[in-house]
């Protein structure tokens, strides 16, 4: 519960030891709430969760001994040096004197070894993220939680971090649970994914399994003005036509008063159907099409198939409600 709202509801998940598991969903889907519950920061009102073999409600300290955590935003003490930040982390986990050897090894591994006595306040976000990773791995956790690890990073830094996460997982065997709303990130990094929306898991499986749930291709067409798109239903190979911005329940209210129109057309094969589709539209009015976008089966189309909406459409709705 988040206030009076149910943030996470009836979730049933099992994560393989040593794997990278992604929790994929739009902003406000309940990902961070789930991480908070699994890391012992908040208590579920009902249900049971085991992390590294310990119950998060009754043995939260044991859970915390066995987990590492990397936040979505950078959280470090900017007034301290790299080594001082790491030292505090070692104290919080009550590590013996070997912490320094481990820290030096990790600093070298992540190419921060020449900067260990500099204050972190002046570092780039990418470097700070690396330091957070070192701090999260210092005590050899069994499970590493990464809450939106690449948010705020540029494309290059993001790819670098992806490689690093893969490498850490392969070399240390730590189980990684990451949350993301970047579909590409989940696709590239994760062995298994759970798609979360409105606090519920709508699907889970490997990226390949999830992609196969996207039944066919998607063609999205923007039109300059409204027209009676029912005529397109006669084109063979079309599976479904949805007017974007019009909820299912409102279909009856379809109106010609709309100044522009956007259709999401689910088809068996976009390449074979497109010529006939375009000719049908231009037959109706030659200058009606504003833009066309074709989408092959991917995680986003799987999400669309499962929820009827794209990430950004859900995020826009959530933002409007706020």
């Amino acid at each position: 519960m988040y206030g009076s709202q149910t943030a996470v509801d009836q979730i049933n998940l099992q994560i393989k030891s040593g794997s990278i598991f992604g929790l994929l969903g739009p902003n406000g889907a309940g990902k961070t709430t789930m991480i908070k519950m699994l890391t012992g920061l908040s208590k579920p009102t009902k249900g049971k969760a085991l992390v590294a073999g310990y119950d998060v409600t009754t043995h939260s300290l044991k859970v915390k001994e066995n987990i590492g955590w990397i936040s979505s935003e950078v959280i470090l003490d900017d007034s301290l040096t790299i080594m001082e930040n790491i030292w505090i982390q070692s104290r919080l986990h009550s590590l013996n004197n070997t912490w320094k050897k481990k820290a030096i090894g990790l600093l070298k591994y992540l190419e921060l070894d020449e900067k260990d006595n500099k204050k972190v306040g002046k570092f780039s976000t990418g470097m700070k993220k690396k330091l957070e990773i070192i701090m999260a791995l210092l005590h050899d956790p069994k499970v590493l939680f990464m809450d939106e690890p690449t948010i705020g990073l540029d494309a290059n830094s993001r790819r670098l971090l992806w490689r690093l996460i893969k490498k850490i997982n392969a070399q240390s065997g730590v189980t990684i649970l990451l949350t993301t709303h970047y579909i590409e990130e989940a696709d590239v990094l994760c062995d298994d994914i759970a798609i979360i929306n409105n606090g519920k898991i709508v699907a889970s499986g490997s990226p390949q399994q999830l992609k196969s749930r996207a039944n066919g291709d998607i063609v999205e067409i923007d039109f300059f003005s409204y027209f009676d798109y029912k005529v397109l239903e006669s084109v063979s190979g079309i599976l479904e036509i949805i007017q974007i911005g019009l909820e299912n329940s409102d279909k009856a209210k379809r109106t010609t008063s709309e100044s522009s129109l956007r259709l999401r057309i689910k088809v068996r094969n976009a390449e074979t159907i497109l010529p006939e589709l375009i000719s049908k539209i231009t037959e109706f009015q030659p200058t009606l099409i504003k833009s066309i976008k074709i989408e092959k089966p991917n995680l986003e189309s799987a999400f669309l198939e499962l929820t009827g909406k794209r990430f950004e459409e859900i995020e826009e709705t959530t933002y409007d409600q706020k």
């Binding site: 890391t39 012992g40 920061l41 300290l61 044991k62 915390k64 001994e65 987990i67 955590w69 936040s71 935003e73 959280i75 470090l76 003490d77 982390q89 919080l92 986990h93 009550s94 939680f145």
Partner: peptide, 12 residues
């Protein structure tokens, strides 16, 4: 700053 959260995810 979120530092409290950093502390609270450790066994402190």
């Amino acid at each position: 700053s979120g530092y409290l959260r950093r502390i609270l995810v450790t066994p402190t």
